[in-house]
Amino acid sequence: MDAKYDTIGINYTELRKPDRRIGRLISDALGSAQNILNVGAGTGSYEPVDRTVTAVEPSREMIRKRSPTAAHVIQASAEDLPFDDKSFDAAMAILTIHHWPDKEAGLREMRRVTRDQIVLFTFDPEHRPWLTDYIPELSALDDAQMPRMSDYERWLGPVDVSPVPIPHDCSDGFLYAYWRRPAAYLNEKIRSGSSSFWSIRNAKPGLEKLGRDLETGEWERRYASLLTAKSYDAGYRLVVAKAPR
């Protein structure tokens, strides 16, 4: 079982605190579903607290970090879900699909065990947030790891895809969450909360250039339009697949 977060999840609980605004979008997308499966559940971010949730997570370390009051968790992988067909009203997968060894198999398994909607919070690899201007390796990694938006329809049937604008003060420290707080990327601890920085070989040249641009004011000049923006389309998407009728 590939459990990457056994190694890289050291600061996850502290840095990856669910953002209530993103959580509201996910909750709304789940609709009236009462029995929900969370695949690649990690520490339980964005799991509804007012419904019955079953979590699936391959990493022992992430399971260990879950709250004692979190949903019941089973150690398993997306590609081999230990449930009967149509066991759940709805299913969710939050910023996890890029870690799955076989993304198509995992999504087809989610479809098999789910009666109605599947809600995915993911990233469109065709998008290029400003951080990739400094660290182009991130774009190459996104291209290699992330399904295209067209893949979801191919694997799940018709889907609705909606942008998820990221608030300037987002509490969840995923990769592009610090878009209006660029100095945060110079902090090694903050970078440790993103799997992408564990995956690229050498971010140092790009980070050094970012540091210089922040010192000289070049970053502010280059990205002036972001300085007062309340939110930013960093490429994150909510993908919702209804059950075939």
Rank of each mutant, 00 (worst) to 15 (best):
S27G: 15
S27R: 15
S27E: 14
D28S: 14
A29H: 10
L30R: 11
G31S: 10
G31I: 09
S32W: 04
A33P: 00
A33M: 05
A33I: 01
A33R: 00
Q34G: 13
Q34W: 00
Q34C: 08
Q34A: 10
L37Y: 05
L37I: 05
L37E: 06
N38D: 14
V39A: 03
G40N: 03
A41W: 02
G42K: 08
G42F: 05
T43S: 11
G44R: 09
G44E: 00
S45M: 04
S45G: 14
Y46V: 07
Y46R: 06
Y46N: 08
P48G: 12
P48T: 12
V49W: 01
V49D: 05
R51L: 00
R51T: 01
R51K: 12
V53H: 02
V53W: 04
A55I: 01
A55V: 10
A55E: 10
V56N: 07
V56L: 04
E57R: 11
E57A: 11
P58W: 01
P58N: 09
P58M: 03
P58T: 00
S59N: 04
S59F: 04
R60S: 13
E61I: 07
E61Q: 14
M62V: 04
I63F: 04
I63T: 05
R64F: 10
K65P: 01
K65F: 09
K65Q: 15
K65L: 13
R66P: 07
R66F: 11
R66M: 11
R66N: 06
S67P: 03
S67K: 13
A71D: 12
A71W: 09
A71E: 04
H72R: 15
H72V: 13
V73M: 08
V73H: 02
V73K: 01
V73C: 12
I74W: 11
